[in-house]
Design a binder for these strands. Structure first.
Lengths: 116, 116
DNA sequence: ATACTATGTCGTATGTTTGCGACATAGTAG
DNA sequence: CTACTATGTCGCAAACATACGACATAGTAT
């Protein structure tokens, strides 16, 4: 992303945007859900469950790992991915606060003349 | 986005990803927050409050409008943007459910041997 | 050792996003 | 009507993202 003046956005806004970007692709949403549903933190089985090439899935996994939402541990030949519940909980708070703030105002239905 | 086989992702995953993408840029997060904080739904003042060119801000506004998170009404010379609280509330539920699912599992701390 | 399996990294083609100036449109005002 | 203001649309350049095959690495197994 090439923001002209990244400085001007708050850390909170940037963090929220970063996480949102990580979830901005159905494959990544699916991966998180998969990891959440399987009790065991599967590895490359993930690739088998998605409609994408193995390498593409690896890339998505790397991206999720870069943001910190998941963690991967090598176990012999296979690699074990699991959710970073700590970060997820923190992010959950962040989103809750954001949406709470956003949904607090008046409804402003279409045709309202929008009390400006 | 060029998914090879878009079909294979659920509607829920795609909807969540679409909204996440809308929030995947600090400027757009900032816009939502701005609209939430000002009681009046300001118009091009938004552009003045952000560290971006006016046209760029317009573009971000269009994107948010395309996803449906905000709505714009023409009021003479100015345009009035306001939050679509109905959609926001719905999306809030969606994210809450998603994160709830994701944070439900075991912590899986690093070094856990990751019970696979 | 040799063959095999699970993963990841690279390079690349194609498409998308971002940021912005130039230009078009549409009200307002004198 | 003419000048001015507020917005939006276009087109473009540069940066990213997506998807994937070819290749590298590193354990396992025989």
């Amino acid at each position: 992303m090439t923001y002209a003046k990244t400085v001007a956005f708050t850390a909170g806004q940037q963090q929220l945007a970063r996480v949102a970007k990580a979830l901005a692709h159905p494959a990544r949403v699916a991966i998180i859900q998969l990891l959440a549903s399987k009790q065991s933190c599967i590895s490359g089985d993930i690739a088998a469950e998605l409609p994408l090439a193995r390498t593409t899935v690896t890339q998505h996994l790397q991206e999720l790992k870069a943001v910190g939402l998941i963690r991967g541990e090598i176990d012999g030949l296979t690699v074990c991915y699991c959710l970073n519940t700590a970060l997820l909980q923190q992010v959950q708070q962040q989103f809750a606060a954001f949406f709470g703030e956003a949904t607090a105002g008046a409804p402003c239905a279409p045709g309202d003349a929008c009390a400006c």
